[in-house]
Structure formats: C-alpha cells, structure tokens
Design a protein around this nucleic acid. Structure first.
Lengths: 148, 148
DNA sequence: CTACCTGCAAAACGTTTGCAAGACG
DNA sequence: CGTCTTGCAAACGTTTTGCAGGTAG
C-alpha cells in the first residue's frame, strides 16, 4: 500500500511535477477504496484535511494525463479508478442502479470474453481503437440483500 | 419511416401521454439520423420550428422512461439513440475522439462476441444485469482520411 | 373545458478557471 | 527563493425546474 504510493510519487516526480500531500491523499483514497470514486466522494473523505474540490479535479485530470488514473463517465458524473499497477489492465465495470456504487466485475471468464471482443474489434478497425468503456448496469449484492 | 412514428405515437398514447408535434419532431430526428444525437444537436435541427431546449430534454427523459430511447453519457454530455424497433437491440457504440461523433459498431461477429459476454455475466449474477453501456473510443474513418 | 404540455428564464449541477496566498524542492 | 500548487470564488456548459400561457383530447 505505502509501496504503491511511492511508485506513484516516483512517476509524478519523474515528470517534473511536485509531490504534495493533497496528491498523496487523493491517491490513497483511490488505492484503499473497494469501489471507484467520484471527485465529490473523494472530497467527502478528505475535506476535513482542508482540501478544495478544485484541487481534486485538477489532480485527477493530471493523473489521467500521466496514465495513472482512468475516468469512467456514467450517469451525469465521472468515476475514477487507478490504471497503473492495477491487477486488471482491461476490465468491465458494474454500476448499481440503487446505490450508484461503481465496482469492477471480477471474473476471469468474463474478462477473457472481453479480451476476445477487444481483439475482434482491433483486428477489424486496426489501431484506431484506443480505449473502451464497458459498464454493466444492475443491482449490486448489497442492495439485493437490503431490498429483498 | 412514417410507420415508425405511428408506432411510437401509439406507445405514447397508450401511456396516457399527449401526442404533440414537438414529440414527433424529436423522434423524427432520431429516426433519420445516422449518428446518435445530443439534446443540443437535436435542438439545432428543430429550433427553426420554435421548440425550446427544455422541451427536448423533458421529452428525451420521458421517452427513456417509456423505453423508447436510451441515453449514452460520454465526455460531459449525453447522446440519445432509439431503443425500440432498432435493428440492433444490444450493440456497441463507437465514439470518435477527433469529431466526437457517436455511431454504432456494425459488425455481426463483434455483436456475437458481446452477446456471449452478456450471457456469461447474466449466468454469473442472475437477473441482476439490466443493461450495458459499451463504448469504444478511437478515430472514425472520416477523420482517419481527413488527418492522414 | 381541463389537464397536460410548452417556452422562457432562472436555478441547479458537475466541472473548470483566474487569482492571490502558500508550499515544495 | 522561484515557481508550482493550492483554496476560494466566480465562470462555465449541460441539464432541470417554476411558472404563466397554450394546446390536445
């Protein structure tokens, strides 16, 4: 965990960008969260440490330009997930229609199927496909239990 | 084409909602367009007939609740596509990073692969998966030619 | 007729930007 | 120290809402 942070900080330093505690706090929230977070959700979790929402947006955008973070737009807002050092370089997102939480679909068979799909598309269009946003919409297990 | 409009109007009437020329114009634009449209793009195409932007948003939301239209959020705005009577009930979107146009990926092999993916997920999670947003990002053929 | 629908303008929402003060290296 | 980064507030673009007038059934 602390290990990850130092790797991210190294990348940041290597690009001539200053390491600040604000950047560290944001990255820590993304590392420790089991779900993907919106800028507002990150703000809720760090605002007691007097960090402005604008700083969070600025750094998320910065992290994205460095390839550290990926933005996932969904339903009027964006969720952010770590891209570098993530176990799953390409994967499928699952968004709950009840609680709006955004998580990864963790299933090797499904990811395999997705990789096949991506290969087909890349073969078909050449190098033109740069990225993919795949989000499945439904009810998460926590909400399923809650509303039963 | 006129055939489609009457089918949509029938659904609208069946739900106790009034058929207006504003609703018809919006649906006609969605039917005749080769790409998926934003609310603003629809407004550009019908505003000479004195239709307010708010009416377009209101009706798109209404159409969505009736299952006629699907919203595809991408990059700060939303695109809308017809869902009912569409040739492709489940398909993949392609968004061009140069011109921001949003189209359907029209390839039976790829769609097949997607259906397989969906089946795997549904089998895994049961009936919890209600919908999927799949958008591939890249450069469309028109832009590819233009910038070469 | 009456309830629903519309246009307009104002408000709300998420995100970005300008600027002076602060902190990293 | 110089310059990059921050917090705050204002600005921005998209979407929603309140309200008075208009229109479908």
């Amino acid at each position: 965990m602390q290990n990850y942070i130092s790797k991210y900080m190294e990348i940041i330093a290597k690009n001539g960008i200053r390491n600040t505690k604000q950047k560290e706090y944001i990255l820590l929230e993304l590392i420790s969260s089991s779900t993907h977070l919106t800028a507002e959700q990150i703000h809720q979790r760090v605002k007691e440490r007097k960090i402005g929402l604008a700083t969070i947006y600025r750094n998320l955008k910065l992290f994205e330009s460095l390839g550290i973070v990926k933005e996932i737009p969904s339903g009027g807002t964006s969720y952010y997930e770590l891209k570098l050092f993530a176990r799953k370089p390409l994967h499928i997102h699952f968004k709950c229609l009840k609680c709006n939480c955004m998580t990864d679909m963790d299933d090797s068979e499904i990811t395999m199927e997705y990789v096949r799909l991506n290969q087909k598309v890349e073969k078909k269009l050449g190098a033109e496909v740069m990225d993919a946003d795949i989000t499945l919409l439904g009810i998460c297990s926590a909400c399923k239990a809650k509303f039963k």
